[in-house]
Design a protein around this nucleic acid. Structure first.
Lengths: 150, 150
DNA sequence: ACTAAAATAGCAACATAGTTGCAAAAATCA
DNA sequence: TGATTTTTGCAACTATGTTGCTATTTTAGT
């Protein structure tokens, strides 16, 4: 059985309204993509899934809107493919509060937010004022470790 | 006076030969760009500087070669612009060993390797095997903090 | 220093990624 | 329902990254 149940249309509509966003087909569909799976998605991955239904430009703009409203956040990468993942409730209009780290599996290439792992405090040299810390761990994810053990 | 002296041609030639790389004009010039300043450079930034002299493709291939040989390393970003920075001596053919963090200034948009700040050990949930940890700190850099104080 | 072999650079052509302006369509709100 | 606002899709464009091929440069051996 699949680990995550499909989000109902009601749920995504709820989420959009809560951010006072117009409820449109593309926004509902793209938000649902995020709810339907545990990892992060790149623009490219989303385009592959729904690119025949919605215009590329619409997908770009939808992602930007979601980031602006604090529905999703960006995850940096070393392969020129920014990923996006759902935010927790603490994020909202114009601000993001994230304390979790990001895990990139080198085998299945999925990216996950590890909400249970809190980012440590980083002590910087004099003169540097930190604002935000992003931690990116590469390795082998839960699924891939399990599959390899069989 | 400029803070960093220009690297001599001899020095870059030395570095290239040490990695058993052919010594060519583009490799010398691009390597010198890195030595002439303290931060990281994106492909775009390099192209702006020497794009009229060398072909775009040559720059891409030179950067890739340098990464492969352990001369420079990549720094992930959230703006689809991978940065490259010089490696310390511990890196070599096919492998990279980095323990430092990366600092991105939100004001001047430069990226620096903070070699004196060591990446802490990150404790992951069961099932995840970490291979590499990348830490990206955003904030205001030394220069920009000083300039603001004036 | 010269030459043959190997490596690299430049070019062209292509593929992918991201942006902008504008008119048509859809969503909101009264 | 209808007017207003917002969003979408399209077209055109810019930027970014890749590949194959040939010419040029570099290297290594004499």
């Amino acid at each position: 059985m699949p680990p995550v149940a499909a989000a109902t249309e009601k749920k995504v509509t709820e989420l959009l309204k809560r951010q006072s966003l117009s409820v449109t087909a593309s926004r509902k569909r793209i938000l649902q993509l995020f709810l339907d799976q545990p990892g992060a998605l790149s623009h490219g991955a989303i385009e592959k899934k729904v690119g025949s239904v919605f215009d590329r430009v619409t997908i770009y703009r939808t992602l930007q809107t979601f980031v602006d409203r604090g529905l999703i956040h960006t995850i940096p990468s070393a392969d020129n493919a920014i990923r996006y993942a759902l935010c927790k409730d603490e994020c909202g209009d114009g601000h993001h509060r994230h304390e979790h780290i990001h895990f990139v599996c080198q085998q299945c290439h999925h990216t996950y937010c590890l909400d249970e792992v809190v980012t440590p405090v980083i002590r910087l040299p004099k003169g540097y004022s930190p604002q935000q810390v992003e931690i990116l761990v590469q390795g082998k994810c839960k699924q891939c470790t399990v599959s390899a053990r069989r």
